[in-house]
């Protein structure tokens, strides 16, 4: 069965990605490529329209949330269907502290992370002891509960949402241009990528992989499965909340509609599409999910249909996602 599936990916798209993967697997070309890309992305706003910068900022935002969800879904193998709720937690924490209490934006960030950790613990601690399917249901429910709660509370501005969230100030500059946010989200995306790689190549990252491969064998090796999963859940949630806080600062206004189920689905789609657990794959997934709707307005309307078809093709031909699995002798160690 498994062998049959492996053989199927002789499609040209797969081959292109495979050679790309080789490129990423060796350190020198990877660093060279990264340097060129970073230089290009730093230069980009100097010679591009507001529109392009807007799209790119959106892309960086997606890279961050996708990498955050990837820690939960990809690294730890937990199905999470309500991730948008966690960036809602971040966005509303910053929103309320900033617009109602006038707290400096940067000071709201620790609170946003704390709120996400508490929410993550409240959801994760009881459910992660149970079988995997429960987490999917509970997170799905949590997503809706958060949306309905912020819709009905006064402090969150009800259905209208919150307005008047203060702009962040950095080195005396008020961040109110799209170019500012372009760089802010770019930095956040770079941090997210570095953190993801470092987590992946660590004791914690390996523990997630052991558990994903064989839960019983992992616990026989002395790994506390529940605790290690909870780590993933909380770290991923904190990622989402941080992105949510920055989103609130960029928009200066947030409403419950920014955090609907469909957003959770799109983020999950990007992670699955690119290849769960594989960082370049997840970035590729984020690129696909954010850029396809922008290609033309007409396509934008059929976005969901296109993604549904894409996902179907993928499930048939490459269930492991676009990015290839590690093969044969690894050069990693």
């Amino acid at each position: 069965m498994a062998e049959k599936k492996q053989k199927k990916f002789t499609n040209p798209f797969g081959t292109v990605v495979e050679s790309l993967y080789d490129l990423f697997d060796k350190k020198a070309p990877r660093y060279l490529l990264m340097t060129i890309m970073t230089a290009f992305l730093i230069y980009l706003p100097l010679s591009s329209s507001r529109f392009t910068q807007e799209i790119m900022t959106n892309l960086f935002f997606y890279v961050v949330v996708c990498l955050g969800l990837n820690i939960i879904v990809g690294f730890a193998g937990l199905l999470h269907l309500g991730y948008a709720a966690f960036f809602a937690v971040g966005a509303y924490t910053t929103g309320i502290l900033s617009s109602v209490y006038g707290v400096n934006f940067w000071l709201t960030l620790p609170f946003s992370i704390i709120a996400a950790v508490i929410a993550g613990l409240a959801i994760g601690a009881p459910t992660l002891r149970l079988r995997g399917d429960y987490l999917a249901i509970v997170t799905l429910g949590f997503g809706e509960i958060i949306r309905l709660t912020v819709r009905n509370l006064d402090i969150t501005g009800g259905a209208m949402g919150l307005i008047g969230i203060q702009r962040p100030v950095l080195f005396g500059i008020v961040l109110n241009q799209i170019t500012h946010f372009y760089y802010l989200f770019f930095i956040l995306a770079v941090i997210a990528i570095i953190v993801s790689y470092r987590l992946h190549d660590s004791r914690l990252g390996r523990a997630w992989e052991y558990i994903r491969e064989d839960e019983d064998a992992a616990s026989a090796m002395g790994i506390n499965v529940v605790q290690i999963r909870l780590y993933a859940f909380i770290i991923g949630s904190a990622f989402g909340a941080l992105a949510g806080s920055l989103y609130a600062a960029k928009m200066t206004a947030i409403s419950p509609e920014s955090f609907m189920f469909i957003h959770s689905v799109m983020i999950l789609l990007a992670v699955v599409l690119g290849g769960m657990g594989k960082i370049p794959g997840v970035i590729l997934g984020a690129i696909i999910v954010t850029l396809i709707p922008e290609l033309s307005r007409d396509i934008g309307q059929f976005r969901l249909i296109i993604f549904a078809v894409l996902l179907l093709i993928l499930m048939l031909y490459r269930p492991q996602g676009i990015w290839p699995e590690r093969q044969g002798i690894s050069t990693k160690l």
């Binding site: 987590l199 914690l204 990252g205 390996r206 491969e213 064998a217 090796m221 790994i223 160690l333």
Partner: peptide, 28 residues
Amino acid sequence: RLFKQMTVMENVMSGMHCRTNAAFAGAV
């Protein structure tokens, strides 16, 4: 019950998990 998709080295490194304790901060 090996971790089949991982290297031999990574498989054996799993045994040291319970004798070490670096977590998030250490990794990042």
